[in-house]
Amino acid sequence: MTFTTHITDVPDDQVAITCDNVTISYGSFEAVKSVFLEVPRGKVTAFIGPSGCGKSTVLRCFNRMNDLIPSFSLKGRIIYEGQDLYEPKVDPVEVRRRIGMVFQRPNPFPKSIYENIAFGARINGYSGDMDELVERSLRRAAVWDECKDKLQESGYSLSGGQQQRLCIARTIATQPDVILMDEPCSALDPISTLKVEETMHELKKEFTIVIVTHNMQQAVRVSDMTAFYNAVAVEGGSGKVGYLVEFDETANIFNNPKQQSTQEYVSGRFG
């Protein structure tokens, strides 16, 4: 089976993360095959595609979250700051500090709003003004105004959308370079979704952001670049293998894609 991938060339000094012929397996099953991709620095890149095409699997490789699955293995290279993230000498804990993650459902710690921000920074050795860091992180995540008068209350006291922005603030507080977001708005109402999207627009001034989304309108609203993944059935009917079909500026993916399957997906003919 041959997989063709269409990639936009990004100058080396503007690349945040590179996938170099990445194949991801669980045991003997290849879940994602032969991904070549250059994620540009300081932009929002969206991963789109039907369920089961591997977009979240690829995203989770960027900060080695899939290491927690015993059967996981990776071939090829994922390069960040000139370093192959899967070399034996690389510390996955440090990778996760530099490349933070915001999950599908808000998951605040069972601590105060203040400690949700301070805890991660503290264990990562932050020695500056913690009050200032907490305020700055909450401001950058656009949730300070809702939190400033109740910092000692539980993070669970916030609404779902506020909790998700608290989780974004918690990620920011550890001072990463890249923020990964795996369907961060799928559990939120439209107003909360808009707030998170507005937050992304502000954050990309300082961070590289990669987001997985099933919402085509959201990809158009928030992303500069879009990668479309698809999946094909494996011979013998033992599942599907995901692959990267096309990667380009978001306007091109939605208005002038190079591949017919991309056109069919973004126009709602399948998926």
Rank of each mutant, 00 (worst) to 15 (best):
T2G: 03
F3Q: 06
T4F: 12
H6Y: 13
I7S: 09
D9F: 05
D9S: 08
D12A: 14
Q14P: 01
A16T: 03
T18I: 11
C19N: 04
C19W: 06
E30N: 13
K33T: 04
S34A: 15
S34L: 13
S34E: 13
L37V: 11
V39R: 02
A46L: 11
A46E: 06
F47H: 07
I48A: 02
G52W: 10
L59S: 01
R60M: 01
R60T: 04
N63K: 06
I69C: 02
K75C: 09
I78A: 01
D84M: 06
Y86R: 01
Y86T: 02
Y86Q: 09
K89C: 05
V90W: 01
P92Y: 15
P92M: 14
V93I: 14
V93H: 10
R97T: 08
M101V: 04
N107Y: 09
N107Q: 08
F109K: 05
P110Q: 05
S112A: 11
E115N: 09
I117G: 00
A118G: 06
A121K: 04
I123Y: 09
Y126G: 03
G128V: 11
G128T: 05
M130R: 08
M130G: 04
D131W: 02
V134I: 11
V134G: 00
E135N: 01
R136W: 08
R140Q: 15
R140G: 01
A141V: 12
K148V: 00
D149W: 02
D149H: 12
K150E: 12
S154L: 01
Y156L: 13
Y156N: 12
S157R: 06
G160I: 03
G161A: 07
Q162N: 10
Q162A: 08
Q164I: 15
C167W: 02
T171L: 03
I172H: 02
A173K: 02
A173G: 07
T174N: 10
T174Q: 13
V178L: 04
V178R: 00
I179Y: 02
L180S: 06
M181N: 03
M181W: 02
E183M: 09
C185N: 07
A187K: 10
D189W: 14
P190M: 05
S192Y: 13
T193W: 03
T193I: 06
L194R: 15
T199K: 09
H201K: 15
L203N: 05
E206G: 07
T208E: 11
T208N: 07
I211F: 08
H214E: 15
N215I: 11
M216Y: 08
V220W: 04
M225I: 08
T226C: 12
A227C: 15
A231D: 01
V232M: 07
A233H: 11
A233T: 15
V234K: 13
E235D: 15
E235R: 13
G236R: 10
G239S: 02
Y243M: 08
L244P: 03
E246I: 00
F247W: 10
E249K: 14
A251E: 14
N252I: 06
F254L: 10
N255R: 09
N256E: 10
N256L: 11
P257I: 13
K258C: 04
Q260E: 13
T262D: 00
Q263G: 13
E264P: 04
S267F: 10
S267L: 10
R269C: 06
